[in-house]
């Protein structure tokens, strides 16, 4: 089975070092739980892993191949859920989901995905009438509507009620049982048995010595 790993990643945003020397490896069925204070680079790391950002140093490898060697292949095997839900206000919940699932081109299963996050009753409601939590559930339904090996989830439980957080944990467990991998950044307790914690607090670069002019 392929290995997903990061070696010695350095990340710099806006001229400021965010973290340095980050390494991990994630086997099939594995989960990585990113923790750390605000601003320690959890979101940046997820964007690096998705290929939206490029690291200043180090490498991200899938099965030994750098992910930027074939960006299209990498994009096809991952789901990235960022802070934004990509829900169009004038399209219904179902139309929103159908578009993203169809774009990924695999056998899409819209109904079960809507059903899992209790959105079936809202399927024909336009996005602008959905609440923040419902938007989030619709974004999460994308994960189930088309299969992908790697889930990159940035604060997936923001705005969710208790029942939905449970449903999310259930979806992640099922994804992992099928050999899927998941990297989650969260501040909220999310039930993920056997998840490997990765704290970014310790990886912050030392503060620069005071410049003397």
């Amino acid at each position: 089975m392929a290995l997903f790993e990061a070696r010695n990643l350095d990340c710099r945003r806006g001229g400021r070092d965010v973290f340095a020397g980050l390494s991990f490896s994630l086997p099939a069925g594995g989960a990585l739980l990113l923790t750390g204070a605000n601003g320690t680079g959890k979101s940046s790391l997820l964007r690096l892993l998705a290929g939206l950002l490029r690291p200043v140093g180090g490498a991200i490898l899938w099965d030994g191949q750098p992910i930027d060697a074939e960006p299209g292949d990498h994009a096809a095997r991952l789901h990235y859920l960022g802070h934004l839900d990509a829900v169009k206000p004038v399209l219904s919940a179902k139309e929103n989901l159908r578009f993203w699932a169809a774009l990924r081109g695999r056998a899409a299963s819209i109904e079960p995905a809507l059903d899992h996050f209790a959105l079936s009753a809202l399927a024909d409601i336009p996005g602008r009438l959905l609440s923040a939590g419902q938007h989030r559930r619709l974004a999460l339904a994308r994960l189930l509507a088309s299969p992908a090996e790697l889930w990159l989830l940035d604060e997936p439980s923001v705005g969710l009620d208790h029942a939905s957080v449970g449903k999310l944990a259930e979806a992640i467990a099922k994804h992992r049982a099928g050999g899927g991998r998941v990297v989650v950044a969260t501040h909220m307790a999310l039930d993920m048995p056997g998840a490997e914690p990765l704290s970014l607090d310790a990886l912050a670069p030392p503060p620069l010595p005071e410049m003397v002019w």
Partner: peptide, 11 residues
Amino acid sequence: DGSLEQLLLSP
């Protein structure tokens, strides 16, 4: 609304 991010990450 984040759609562009998702477009970039689509196949």
